[in-house]
């Protein structure tokens, strides 16, 4: 669907490149995640892919055609959800959706139906200036999906929302994928990335440091184990054992036999931990 080859970009006046040799491919119907901390270059990639910025070097193709050769028709195909809410604040939520819906050839879904999806029904006719940050973010997200685009660029779509709402947004994105949409998801929320992404690219300081399925990333870079909580000398203790290591396997067996074990959990490395391992810095 989208192919990016050797992308370089430097903001005017900046000393360092925002992107340096970024290459990846997003396959049709896939949710491709960009995971990285603020300033890593995630949004810059999105801005180049939705034609707001021109790359200094590199090639981007969409549906086999160079992005540069796509005219305004390209925007009929895509939907963009921005990291920061950019709405017409004096208008109501539904007016914000209806105003932009008319730009597209495909009929858009009614605002009421969309608002229900993310728990915004009560705010349908409320002025956007009275929305909270999370509500605005949800509205920006709805605006991007209302015309059923083939390609979705979602930049932190769950930003500013509580866990329950985040779950609803995750469900809507999954439904978009089920509809056949291809999604490029930019986030620093590893929970969202793990729940949704078929493949993930870790981006740091403008470079992709790893790109694979979440499972492969964990298998390749993560450290799994068994986490055991046990009571010894009237004190609750916690220890992690690596089942691949023979000596640790024996220690675990001995602990289980001692009858001191209180809880036992399998433990997988999180994407966040893998990111730290690969880059030496956290995701936030």
């Amino acid at each position: 669907m989208i192919r990016v080859e050797d992308l370089h970009f430097c903001y005017p006046g900046a000393q360092e490149k925002a992107l340096s040799g970024v290459s990846f491919e997003v396959k049709p119907g896939e949710i491709f995640g960009f995971l990285g901390p603020s300033g890593a270059g995630k949004s810059t990639v999105q801005r180049i892919l939705n034609k707001q910025l021109s790359a200094d070097h590199g090639l981007v193709t969409y549906s086999g055609q160079a992005l540069a050769d796509w005219g305004r028709e390209y925007f009929q195909e895509i939907g963009v959800s921005f990291e920061l809410p950019n709405l017409f604040e004096r208008l109501s939520g539904s007016a914000n959706l209806l105003a932009l819906a008319a730009f597209y050839k495909k009929p858009s879904r009614p605002p009421k139906e969309l608002f229900e999806l993310v728990g915004l029904s009560e705010a349908l006719n409320k002025k956007v200036s009275e929305y909270s940050k999370g509500m605005k973010q949800r509205l920006v997200f709805l605006r991007s999906i209302q015309h059923a685009p083939k390609m979705l660029f979602l930049d932190e779509p769950t930003g500013g929302n509580d866990p329950a709402t985040t779950e609803r947004i995750i469900e809507v994105i999954a439904a978009e994928k089920a509809r056949g949409a291809t999604v490029l998801l930019t986030t620093h929320d590893m929970r969202v990335a793990e729940a949704l992404c078929d493949r993930i690219a870790f981006i740091n300081e403008g470079q992709i440091v790893a790109c694979d399925t979440p499972r492969n990333l964990k298998l390749e870079h993560g450290q799994s184990g068994v986490e055991v909580e046990f009571v010894r000398d009237e004190e609750l203790r916690r220890e992690v054992f690596d089942p691949k290591d023979a000596q640790q396997r024996e220690s675990l067996a001995a602990l289980l036999a001692s009858g001191e074990v209180e809880t036992l959990h399998s433990r997988e490395a999180s994407l966040g931990e893998i990111f730290i391992k690969l880059t030496g810095r956290g995701l936030v």
Binding site: Q52, F82, N86, L87, F88
Partner: peptide
């Protein structure tokens, strides 16, 4: 100021 122009830029408006 509100960034609404960015939303218009990524739409098919001429």
């Amino acid at each position: 100021q509100t960034g609404a122009i960015e939303a218009i830029k990524v739409s098919p408006v001429g």
